[in-house]
Nucleic acid binder design. Sequence first.
DNA 1: GTCTTATGAATGTGTATTCATTCATTTTTT
DNA 2: AAAAAATGAATGAATACACATTCATAAGAC
Lengths: 197, 197
Amino acid sequence: MRTSDKHTKIIEAAITVFARKGFFSARISDIAKEAQVADGTIYLYFNNKYDILISLFEEEIGKIILEVKLLTEKETDPRKMLQIFALHHMQLMEEKKELAEVLQMELRQSNKFMKEYRNTKFIEYVDVISAIIHKGQEMGVFRKSLLPGVFKRAFFGALDETSRLWVLSPDHSYTIDEAAQQISDIFISGIMAEGQP
Amino acid sequence: MRTSDKHTKIIEAAITVFARKGFFSARISDIAKEAQVADGTIYLYFNNKYDILISLFEEEIGKIILEVKLLTEKETDPRKMLQIFALHHMQLMEEKKELAEVLQMELRQSNKFMKEYRNTKFIEYVDVISAIIHKGQEMGVFRKSLLPGVFKRAFFGALDETSRLWVLSPDHSYTIDEAAQQISDIFISGIMAEGQP
DNA sequence: GTCTTATGAATGTGTATTCATTCATTTTTT
DNA sequence: AAAAAATGAATGAATACACATTCATAAGAC
Protein backbone atom coordinates (compact mmCIF):
# COMPACT_ATOMS: atom_id res chain seq x y z
CA MET A 1 0.00 0.00 0.00
CA ARG A 2 1.38 3.35 -0.97
CA THR A 3 2.08 5.96 1.68
CA SER A 4 -0.34 8.50 0.31
CA ASP A 5 -3.19 6.01 0.59
CA LYS A 6 -2.88 5.81 4.37
CA HIS A 7 -2.69 9.58 4.67
CA THR A 8 -5.91 9.92 2.70
CA LYS A 9 -7.59 7.07 4.53
CA ILE A 10 -6.84 8.70 7.87
CA ILE A 11 -8.09 12.11 6.73
CA GLU A 12 -11.30 10.56 5.46
CA ALA A 13 -11.77 8.61 8.64
CA ALA A 14 -11.15 11.77 10.66
CA ILE A 15 -13.83 13.63 8.72
CA THR A 16 -16.33 10.91 9.54
CA VAL A 17 -15.39 10.71 13.21
CA PHE A 18 -15.10 14.47 13.78
CA ALA A 19 -18.48 14.93 12.12
CA ARG A 20 -20.02 12.30 14.38
CA LYS A 21 -18.49 13.29 17.70
CA GLY A 22 -16.78 16.64 17.30
CA PHE A 23 -13.06 17.18 17.55
CA PHE A 24 -12.68 17.00 21.32
CA SER A 25 -14.88 14.00 21.90
CA ALA A 26 -13.32 12.06 19.04
CA ARG A 27 -10.67 9.61 20.16
CA ILE A 28 -7.57 8.80 18.17
CA SER A 29 -8.56 5.17 18.54
CA ASP A 30 -11.93 5.98 16.88
CA ILE A 31 -10.16 7.44 13.89
CA ALA A 32 -7.73 4.52 13.76
CA LYS A 33 -10.58 2.03 13.85
CA GLU A 34 -12.49 3.89 11.15
CA ALA A 35 -9.37 4.04 8.97
CA GLN A 36 -8.57 0.39 9.71
CA VAL A 37 -5.09 1.13 10.96
CA ALA A 38 -3.43 0.85 14.35
CA ASP A 39 -3.47 3.81 16.72
CA GLY A 40 0.26 4.23 16.38
CA THR A 41 0.12 4.34 12.60
CA ILE A 42 -1.64 7.68 12.77
CA TYR A 43 1.47 9.17 14.35
CA LEU A 44 3.53 8.09 11.38
CA TYR A 45 1.48 10.45 9.22
CA PHE A 46 0.49 13.23 11.61
CA ASN A 47 2.23 14.90 14.51
CA ASN A 48 -0.78 14.94 16.79
CA LYS A 49 -4.54 15.21 16.91
CA TYR A 50 -4.60 18.93 16.03
CA ASP A 51 -2.39 18.25 13.07
CA ILE A 52 -5.02 15.92 11.60
CA LEU A 53 -7.61 18.67 11.86
CA ILE A 54 -5.38 21.32 10.36
CA SER A 55 -4.30 19.08 7.48
CA LEU A 56 -7.94 18.28 6.88
CA PHE A 57 -8.78 21.99 6.68
CA GLU A 58 -5.95 22.86 4.39
CA GLU A 59 -6.44 20.00 1.98
CA GLU A 60 -10.20 20.02 1.74
CA ILE A 61 -10.68 23.77 1.57
CA GLY A 62 -7.88 23.83 -0.96
CA LYS A 63 -9.86 21.56 -3.26
CA ILE A 64 -13.01 23.63 -2.81
CA ILE A 65 -11.24 26.87 -3.69
CA LEU A 66 -9.85 25.38 -6.86
CA GLU A 67 -13.30 24.23 -7.93
CA VAL A 68 -15.09 27.47 -7.18
CA LYS A 69 -12.45 29.63 -8.80
CA LEU A 70 -12.63 27.51 -11.91
CA LEU A 71 -16.39 27.81 -12.06
CA THR A 72 -16.73 31.53 -11.36
CA GLU A 73 -13.86 32.51 -13.60
CA LYS A 74 -15.75 31.14 -16.59
CA GLU A 75 -18.34 33.90 -16.05
CA THR A 76 -18.06 37.59 -16.74
CA ASP A 77 -21.33 38.84 -15.24
CA PRO A 78 -20.73 39.41 -11.51
CA ARG A 79 -24.39 38.64 -10.76
CA LYS A 80 -24.04 35.23 -12.34
CA MET A 81 -20.78 34.74 -10.48
CA LEU A 82 -22.51 35.25 -7.15
CA GLN A 83 -25.24 32.81 -8.14
CA ILE A 84 -22.67 30.23 -9.08
CA PHE A 85 -20.78 30.71 -5.86
CA ALA A 86 -23.94 30.31 -3.80
CA LEU A 87 -25.15 27.25 -5.66
CA HIS A 88 -21.76 25.59 -5.61
CA HIS A 89 -21.29 26.23 -1.91
CA MET A 90 -24.68 24.85 -1.00
CA GLN A 91 -24.44 21.82 -3.25
CA LEU A 92 -21.07 21.02 -1.81
CA MET A 93 -22.43 21.10 1.72
CA GLU A 94 -25.21 18.78 0.64
CA GLU A 95 -22.96 16.33 -1.18
CA LYS A 96 -20.34 16.19 1.53
CA LYS A 97 -22.38 16.42 4.69
CA GLU A 98 -19.70 15.11 6.98
CA LEU A 99 -17.08 17.48 5.67
CA ALA A 100 -19.58 20.31 5.91
CA GLU A 101 -20.24 19.59 9.56
CA VAL A 102 -16.57 19.48 10.39
CA LEU A 103 -15.76 22.68 8.56
CA GLN A 104 -18.71 24.55 10.01
CA MET A 105 -18.16 23.45 13.59
CA GLU A 106 -14.46 23.20 13.96
CA LEU A 107 -13.51 26.15 11.81
CA ARG A 108 -15.00 28.37 14.48
CA GLN A 109 -13.37 26.54 17.34
CA SER A 110 -10.02 26.41 15.66
CA ASN A 111 -9.18 30.04 16.26
CA LYS A 112 -9.63 29.39 19.95
CA PHE A 113 -7.62 26.33 20.72
CA MET A 114 -4.88 26.81 18.19
CA LYS A 115 -3.80 30.37 18.78
CA GLU A 116 -0.98 30.21 16.32
CA TYR A 117 -3.05 28.80 13.46
CA ARG A 118 -4.62 31.31 11.09
CA ASN A 119 -6.78 29.62 8.57
CA THR A 120 -5.43 31.29 5.47
CA LYS A 121 -7.17 28.88 3.10
CA PHE A 122 -10.51 29.85 4.55
CA ILE A 123 -9.74 33.54 4.15
CA GLU A 124 -8.80 32.87 0.53
CA TYR A 125 -12.16 31.18 -0.03
CA VAL A 126 -14.20 34.06 1.33
CA ASP A 127 -12.10 36.54 -0.58
CA VAL A 128 -13.43 35.07 -3.80
CA ILE A 129 -16.69 36.80 -2.85
CA SER A 130 -15.18 40.21 -2.21
CA ALA A 131 -13.31 39.99 -5.51
CA ILE A 132 -16.62 39.47 -7.29
CA ILE A 133 -18.13 42.49 -5.54
CA HIS A 134 -15.17 44.63 -6.40
CA LYS A 135 -15.46 43.65 -10.03
CA GLY A 136 -19.20 44.39 -10.02
CA GLN A 137 -18.57 47.82 -8.57
CA GLU A 138 -15.97 48.64 -11.21
CA MET A 139 -18.40 47.59 -13.91
CA GLY A 140 -21.04 49.84 -12.34
CA VAL A 141 -23.42 46.94 -11.73
CA PHE A 142 -23.21 47.01 -7.94
CA ARG A 143 -23.57 50.04 -5.69
CA LYS A 144 -20.29 51.80 -4.99
CA SER A 145 -21.33 52.38 -1.37
CA LEU A 146 -21.11 48.66 -0.59
CA LEU A 147 -18.27 47.60 1.68
CA PRO A 148 -16.88 44.42 0.10
CA GLY A 149 -15.47 43.39 3.48
CA VAL A 150 -18.92 43.45 5.02
CA PHE A 151 -20.59 41.90 2.03
CA LYS A 152 -18.31 38.89 1.80
CA ARG A 153 -18.97 37.99 5.43
CA ALA A 154 -22.69 38.57 5.21
CA PHE A 155 -23.02 36.54 2.04
CA PHE A 156 -20.85 33.71 3.30
CA GLY A 157 -22.64 33.75 6.67
CA ALA A 158 -26.03 33.53 5.02
CA LEU A 159 -25.00 30.55 2.90
CA ASP A 160 -23.17 28.85 5.71
CA GLU A 161 -25.90 29.14 8.30
CA THR A 162 -28.62 28.08 5.89
CA SER A 163 -26.72 25.03 4.72
CA ARG A 164 -25.67 24.19 8.27
CA LEU A 165 -29.24 23.95 9.46
CA TRP A 166 -30.33 22.22 6.28
CA VAL A 167 -27.75 19.49 6.84
CA LEU A 168 -28.67 19.08 10.50
CA SER A 169 -32.42 19.04 10.18
CA PRO A 170 -34.01 15.82 8.99
CA ASP A 171 -36.99 17.29 7.15
CA HIS A 172 -36.61 19.95 4.50
CA SER A 173 -39.39 22.24 3.37
CA TYR A 174 -37.10 23.51 0.61
CA THR A 175 -34.29 22.15 -1.53
CA ILE A 176 -30.68 23.23 -1.39
CA ASP A 177 -30.99 24.69 -4.88
CA GLU A 178 -34.06 26.71 -3.93
CA ALA A 179 -32.27 28.09 -0.90
CA ALA A 180 -29.20 29.02 -2.93
CA GLN A 181 -31.43 30.69 -5.50
CA GLN A 182 -33.36 32.68 -2.89
CA ILE A 183 -30.23 33.84 -1.13
CA SER A 184 -28.42 34.95 -4.25
CA ASP A 185 -31.61 36.65 -5.50
CA ILE A 186 -31.98 38.59 -2.27
CA PHE A 187 -28.38 39.67 -2.20
CA ILE A 188 -28.15 40.52 -5.88
CA SER A 189 -31.28 42.61 -6.06
CA GLY A 190 -30.24 44.14 -2.75
CA ILE A 191 -26.98 45.47 -4.09
CA MET A 192 -27.76 46.60 -7.62
CA ALA A 193 -26.71 50.08 -8.61
CA GLU A 194 -29.48 52.56 -9.47
CA GLY A 195 -30.88 52.17 -12.94
CA GLN A 196 -29.53 48.69 -13.57
CA PRO A 197 -31.91 46.23 -15.27
CA MET B 1 -24.09 36.13 50.51
CA ARG B 2 -27.36 35.03 48.97
CA THR B 3 -27.60 31.80 47.03
CA SER B 4 -28.52 33.44 43.76
CA ASP B 5 -25.38 35.55 43.83
CA LYS B 6 -23.16 32.49 43.59
CA HIS B 7 -25.16 31.09 40.71
CA THR B 8 -24.74 34.34 38.80
CA LYS B 9 -21.09 34.65 39.72
CA ILE B 10 -20.39 31.18 38.39
CA ILE B 11 -22.27 31.81 35.15
CA GLU B 12 -20.38 35.05 34.61
CA ALA B 13 -17.08 33.39 35.35
CA ALA B 14 -17.96 30.58 32.95
CA ILE B 15 -18.66 33.07 30.17
CA THR B 16 -15.24 34.60 30.67
CA VAL B 17 -13.42 31.28 30.82
CA PHE B 18 -15.33 29.60 27.97
CA ALA B 19 -14.69 32.66 25.82
CA ARG B 20 -10.99 32.51 26.60
CA LYS B 21 -10.36 28.78 26.25
CA GLY B 22 -13.45 27.20 24.73
CA PHE B 23 -15.71 24.76 26.50
CA PHE B 24 -13.52 21.67 26.31
CA SER B 25 -10.25 23.30 27.23
CA ALA B 26 -11.79 25.21 30.12
CA ARG B 27 -11.20 23.55 33.47
CA ILE B 28 -13.72 23.58 36.27
CA SER B 29 -10.92 24.87 38.45
CA ASP B 30 -10.48 27.81 36.05
CA ILE B 31 -14.11 28.73 36.44
CA ALA B 32 -13.93 28.29 40.20
CA LYS B 33 -10.90 30.54 40.39
CA GLU B 34 -12.51 33.19 38.22
CA ALA B 35 -15.70 33.07 40.31
CA GLN B 36 -13.66 33.08 43.53
CA VAL B 37 -15.25 29.92 44.87
CA ALA B 38 -13.95 26.43 45.56
CA ASP B 39 -14.11 23.78 42.85
CA GLY B 40 -16.67 21.82 44.81
CA THR B 41 -18.96 24.79 45.24
CA ILE B 42 -19.74 24.72 41.56
CA TYR B 43 -21.37 21.32 42.00
CA LEU B 44 -23.76 22.77 44.56
CA TYR B 45 -25.23 24.95 41.82
CA PHE B 46 -24.74 22.87 38.67
CA ASN B 47 -24.86 19.16 37.96
CA ASN B 48 -21.79 19.07 35.75
CA LYS B 49 -19.75 21.02 33.26
CA TYR B 50 -22.34 20.71 30.45
CA ASP B 51 -25.01 21.95 32.79
CA ILE B 52 -23.13 25.22 33.25
CA LEU B 53 -23.03 25.71 29.50
CA ILE B 54 -26.69 24.88 29.00
CA SER B 55 -27.80 27.13 31.85
CA LEU B 56 -25.69 29.87 30.38
CA PHE B 57 -27.38 29.46 27.00
CA GLU B 58 -30.88 29.39 28.36
CA GLU B 59 -30.48 32.33 30.70
CA GLU B 60 -28.52 34.64 28.44
CA ILE B 61 -30.45 33.98 25.24
CA GLY B 62 -33.62 34.34 27.29
CA LYS B 63 -32.61 37.88 28.22
CA ILE B 64 -31.72 38.73 24.63
CA ILE B 65 -35.07 37.51 23.33
CA LEU B 66 -36.95 39.61 25.84
CA GLU B 67 -35.02 42.70 24.81
CA VAL B 68 -35.35 42.23 21.07
CA LYS B 69 -39.04 41.39 21.25
CA LEU B 70 -39.66 44.50 23.30
CA LEU B 71 -37.80 46.65 20.79
CA THR B 72 -39.27 45.25 17.58
CA GLU B 73 -42.81 45.09 18.90
CA LYS B 74 -42.81 48.85 19.28
CA GLU B 75 -42.58 49.13 15.50
CA THR B 76 -45.20 48.46 12.89
CA ASP B 77 -43.16 48.81 9.71
CA PRO B 78 -41.54 45.41 9.03
CA ARG B 79 -38.62 47.09 7.28
CA LYS B 80 -37.85 49.08 10.40
CA MET B 81 -38.28 45.94 12.48
CA LEU B 82 -35.56 44.19 10.50
CA GLN B 83 -33.28 47.18 10.89
CA ILE B 84 -33.83 47.19 14.61
CA PHE B 85 -33.18 43.48 14.88
CA ALA B 86 -29.95 43.77 12.95
CA LEU B 87 -28.69 46.76 14.89
CA HIS B 88 -29.61 45.30 18.24
CA HIS B 89 -27.98 41.98 17.44
CA MET B 90 -24.76 43.55 16.31
CA GLN B 91 -24.56 46.03 19.18
CA LEU B 92 -25.13 43.23 21.62
CA MET B 93 -22.25 41.23 20.20
CA GLU B 94 -20.06 44.29 20.47
CA GLU B 95 -21.06 45.11 24.04
CA LYS B 96 -20.80 41.59 25.31
CA LYS B 97 -17.86 40.22 23.41
CA GLU B 98 -17.24 37.30 25.72
CA LEU B 99 -20.83 36.16 25.64
CA ALA B 100 -20.83 36.59 21.87
CA GLU B 101 -17.83 34.33 21.49
CA VAL B 102 -19.34 31.65 23.66
CA LEU B 103 -22.69 31.71 21.90
CA GLN B 104 -21.15 31.76 18.44
CA MET B 105 -18.70 28.94 19.09
CA GLU B 106 -20.40 26.63 21.48
CA LEU B 107 -23.92 26.94 20.17
CA ARG B 108 -22.77 25.07 17.11
CA GLN B 109 -20.88 22.43 19.01
CA SER B 110 -23.68 21.88 21.45
CA ASN B 111 -25.85 19.89 19.07
CA LYS B 112 -23.00 17.47 18.67
CA PHE B 113 -21.93 16.60 22.14
CA MET B 114 -25.27 16.90 23.86
CA LYS B 115 -27.52 14.84 21.67
CA GLU B 116 -30.53 15.26 23.87
CA TYR B 117 -30.31 19.04 24.12
CA ARG B 118 -32.27 21.04 21.58
CA ASN B 119 -31.66 24.72 21.97
CA THR B 120 -35.23 25.91 21.97
CA LYS B 121 -34.34 29.39 23.14
CA PHE B 122 -32.13 29.87 20.14
CA ILE B 123 -34.88 28.70 17.79
CA GLU B 124 -37.22 31.17 19.46
CA TYR B 125 -34.75 33.97 18.83
CA VAL B 126 -34.38 33.26 15.13
CA ASP B 127 -38.12 32.86 14.77
CA VAL B 128 -38.50 36.53 15.62
CA ILE B 129 -37.07 37.14 12.15
CA SER B 130 -39.44 34.83 10.30
CA ALA B 131 -42.38 36.40 12.14
CA ILE B 132 -41.32 39.80 10.81
CA ILE B 133 -41.10 38.44 7.26
CA HIS B 134 -44.49 36.84 7.54
CA LYS B 135 -45.97 40.10 8.69
CA GLY B 136 -44.30 42.00 5.86
CA GLN B 137 -45.69 39.53 3.34
CA GLU B 138 -49.21 39.89 4.69
CA MET B 139 -48.90 43.65 4.46
CA GLY B 140 -47.74 43.29 0.86
CA VAL B 141 -44.40 44.95 1.57
CA PHE B 142 -42.24 41.86 1.04
CA ARG B 143 -42.38 39.46 -1.87
CA LYS B 144 -44.77 36.57 -1.36
CA SER B 145 -42.32 34.18 -3.02
CA LEU B 146 -39.88 34.50 -0.12
CA LEU B 147 -39.49 31.44 2.09
CA PRO B 148 -39.46 32.81 5.65
CA GLY B 149 -37.62 29.67 6.78
CA VAL B 150 -34.77 30.39 4.40
CA PHE B 151 -34.77 34.09 5.06
CA LYS B 152 -34.49 33.82 8.82
CA ARG B 153 -31.42 31.63 8.55
CA ALA B 154 -29.79 33.72 5.87
CA PHE B 155 -30.40 36.96 7.75
CA PHE B 156 -29.25 35.56 11.06
CA GLY B 157 -26.24 33.94 9.42
CA ALA B 158 -25.22 37.19 7.80
CA LEU B 159 -25.39 39.09 11.08
CA ASP B 160 -23.75 36.34 13.06
CA GLU B 161 -20.80 35.79 10.77
CA THR B 162 -20.17 39.49 10.33
CA SER B 163 -20.23 40.18 14.05
CA ARG B 164 -18.18 37.07 14.76
CA LEU B 165 -15.32 38.23 12.61
CA TRP B 166 -15.68 41.79 13.80
CA VAL B 167 -15.28 40.66 17.40
CA LEU B 168 -12.29 38.45 16.58
CA SER B 169 -10.37 40.82 14.39
CA PRO B 170 -8.38 43.55 16.10
CA ASP B 171 -8.67 46.24 13.43
CA HIS B 172 -11.98 47.35 12.02
CA SER B 173 -12.38 49.12 8.72
CA TYR B 174 -16.06 49.63 9.56
CA THR B 175 -18.19 50.12 12.66
CA ILE B 176 -20.73 47.67 13.99
CA ASP B 177 -23.49 50.16 13.22
CA GLU B 178 -22.33 50.57 9.63
CA ALA B 179 -22.25 46.82 9.15
CA ALA B 180 -25.75 46.41 10.63
CA GLN B 181 -26.99 49.18 8.37
CA GLN B 182 -25.44 47.69 5.23
CA ILE B 183 -26.76 44.23 5.96
CA SER B 184 -30.31 45.31 6.67
CA ASP B 185 -30.23 47.60 3.62
CA ILE B 186 -29.14 44.75 1.37
CA PHE B 187 -31.72 42.37 2.70
CA ILE B 188 -34.57 44.85 2.77
CA SER B 189 -34.09 46.17 -0.73
CA GLY B 190 -33.53 42.58 -1.82
CA ILE B 191 -36.93 41.40 -0.66
CA MET B 192 -39.28 44.27 -1.45
CA ALA B 193 -42.43 43.49 -3.37
CA GLU B 194 -42.82 44.99 -6.84
CA GLY B 195 -43.93 48.59 -6.87
CA GLN B 196 -43.10 49.31 -3.23
CA PRO B 197 -41.45 52.69 -2.51
C1' DG C 1 19.54 -9.36 5.62
C1' DT C 2 18.56 -4.64 5.91
C1' DC C 3 15.34 -0.98 5.77
C1' DT C 4 10.72 0.68 5.97
C1' DT C 5 6.25 0.56 7.66
C1' DA C 6 2.89 -0.98 10.99
C1' DT C 7 1.26 -2.62 15.44
C1' DG C 8 -1.09 -2.14 19.98
C1' DA C 9 -0.02 -2.63 24.83
C1' DA C 10 1.90 0.33 28.27
C1' DT C 11 2.71 4.89 30.08
C1' DG C 12 1.73 9.18 31.98
C1' DT C 13 -0.81 13.20 32.31
C1' DG C 14 -4.75 16.03 33.02
C1' DT C 15 -8.90 16.98 35.08
C1' DA C 16 -14.07 16.12 36.23
C1' DT C 17 -16.19 14.79 40.11
C1' DT C 18 -16.67 13.20 44.95
C1' DC C 19 -16.96 13.52 49.81
C1' DA C 20 -15.16 13.90 54.55
C1' DT C 21 -14.43 17.88 57.01
C1' DT C 22 -14.77 22.80 58.46
C1' DC C 23 -17.15 26.68 60.11
C1' DA C 24 -20.48 30.41 60.25
C1' DT C 25 -25.18 30.97 61.17
C1' DT C 26 -29.62 29.73 63.03
C1' DT C 27 -32.53 27.28 66.23
C1' DT C 28 -33.44 25.21 70.54
C1' DT C 29 -32.76 24.54 75.38
C1' DT C 30 -31.86 26.03 79.98
C1' DA D 1 -29.36 35.96 77.78
C1' DA D 2 -26.09 32.45 77.50
C1' DA D 3 -24.94 27.84 76.13
C1' DA D 4 -25.67 23.87 73.34
C1' DA D 5 -27.16 21.65 69.27
C1' DA D 6 -28.32 21.49 64.53
C1' DT D 7 -27.86 22.94 59.91
C1' DG D 8 -26.07 23.21 55.42
C1' DA D 9 -23.05 26.05 52.54
C1' DA D 10 -18.42 25.89 51.28
C1' DT D 11 -14.03 23.80 50.87
C1' DG D 12 -10.16 21.44 48.42
C1' DA D 13 -7.51 17.21 48.70
C1' DA D 14 -8.19 12.59 47.01
C1' DT D 15 -10.12 9.59 43.55
C1' DA D 16 -10.88 7.57 39.36
C1' DC D 17 -10.78 7.40 34.74
C1' DA D 18 -10.19 8.59 30.00
C1' DC D 19 -7.19 8.98 26.33
C1' DA D 20 -3.09 11.09 23.63
C1' DT D 21 1.21 9.63 22.80
C1' DT D 22 5.28 6.48 22.90
C1' DC D 23 8.08 2.65 21.82
C1' DA D 24 9.61 -2.13 21.82
C1' DT D 25 8.48 -5.47 18.69
C1' DA D 26 6.67 -7.56 14.36
C1' DA D 27 5.63 -7.82 9.53
C1' DG D 28 6.56 -6.70 4.95
C1' DA D 29 9.29 -4.92 1.05
C1' DC D 30 13.28 -5.14 -1.79
